[in-house]
């Protein structure tokens, strides 16, 4: 089978190696342009884990723009983050990108492994339904917002798989107001309370990203976070991949494109329902009385007290 643009053999999406790389980079440029994600002189921080998605977007934004830095949150996941962090440090050194690393241990006193160990001890006494991805989601989002201050845009490596899964998860959990925030540019409020979050890999699948990173010979630590199998996302992901089998990206693109059709209406409907308050404990912007981060810290402190730790 020949590439649809030349006589070379096909690798993926009816394209040869070189034309796939060209297609991939064009999709990223098109997403940035169509959704007005980046202005020419923007100062961009890329939230990176050292995995294929964030390394790829870091590489591309650094290739296309002048003012790019990397941000890594070290949650403290034994045997995982230490390895991805090493990969990331080598990558940033090779491409001369400034890397900013911040840890849970310094920010919250302990690692994610410690928090999960604590919760698992507590679960033997009373059930506390906190999953690792809940802690990670809340603490990491807080730290990314905090350490993105001073930048114009905060970019993440979220891809077509992540986004189609997230849309389904929020539909299944009846969380439409949360869904309203989604899209290549995150958020619905016009108030400049947070650095805008952008997702230039929004229309590219994990398979395309791994193919690109393999062809580019990025030295990556190819594995998933050990806590992922405990998440609801893993269930949605596996079912979606089963349905998508042999249909390449068609089903996942249908989910995100249909969502984007209705997202303007969703954003306008829920825009006025969001009331911005300031957390009574830490004073950061939130739509509640106490922000999610402080609420979680209070729960953890309660667990520590009851476990006498």
């Amino acid at each position: 089978m020949k590439c649809k643009k030349c006589n070379n053999g096909v690798l993926i999406n009816d394209l040869c190696n070189d034309h796939f790389i060209e297609y991939f980079e064009n999709i990223v440029k098109k997403t940035i342009k169509e959704y007005n994600l980046i202005e020419k002189d923007d100062k961009i921080i890329v939230a990176t884990s050292g995995g294929k998605d964030s390394i790829t977007i870091l590489y591309l934004l650094n290739k296309f723009y002048n003012n790019v830095e990397a941000l890594c949150i070290d949650e403290g996941i034994k045997g995982y983050r230490s390895k991805t962090l090493l990969t990331l440090k080598q990558f940033c050194k090779e491409y001369n990108i400034k890397l900013n690393v911040y840890s849970y241990k310094k920010e919250f006193g302990h690692s994610l492994d410690y928090f999960m160990d604590l919760i698992s001890k507590y679960n033997k006494i009373k059930k506390l339904n906190i999953k690792p991805c809940t802690i990670c989601g809340i603490f990491r989002r807080y730290m990314i917002n905090k350490y993105s201050t001073g930048f114009d845009k905060s970019a993440t490596g979220h891809n077509l798989d992540d986004e189609s899964q997230a849309i389904l998860m929020n539909l299944l959990k009846n969380q439409i107001p949360i869904l309203a925030r989604f899209g290549p540019l995150t958020g619905i409020s016009n108030e400049n309370l947070f650095v805008p979050r952008i997702k230039p890999l929004y229309f590219l699948s994990e398979k395309e990203i791994l193919t690109y990173s393999y062809l580019k010979k990025f030295d990556l630590f190819y594995t998933e976070c050990p806590y992922v199998p405990q998440a609801f996302r893993a269930e949605v992901r596996d079912n979606l991949n089963e349905i998508s089998k042999s249909k390449t990206n068609e089903i996942k693109l249908n989910i995100v494109n249909n969502f984007l059709e209705i997202s303007k209406k969703l954003k306008s409907k829920y825009k006025d329902t969001i009331q911005i308050n300031y957390c009574t404990i830490c004073n950061i912007a939130t739509n509640k009385k106490i922000c999610n981060k402080c609420e979680l810290i209070e729960k953890i402190n309660m667990v520590k007290k009851e476990c006498k730790l």
Partner: peptide, 24 residues
């Protein structure tokens, strides 16, 4: 070398299925 899934393989080849799923 990364190849298309419709590529023919024969005995003596070495094939790896690398997982596209990562996390975090």
């Amino acid at each position: 070398s990364v190849v298309n899934e419709n590529t023919n393989i024969k005995n003596s080849d070495n094939i790896q299925f690398l997982s596209v799923i990562s996390g975090g």
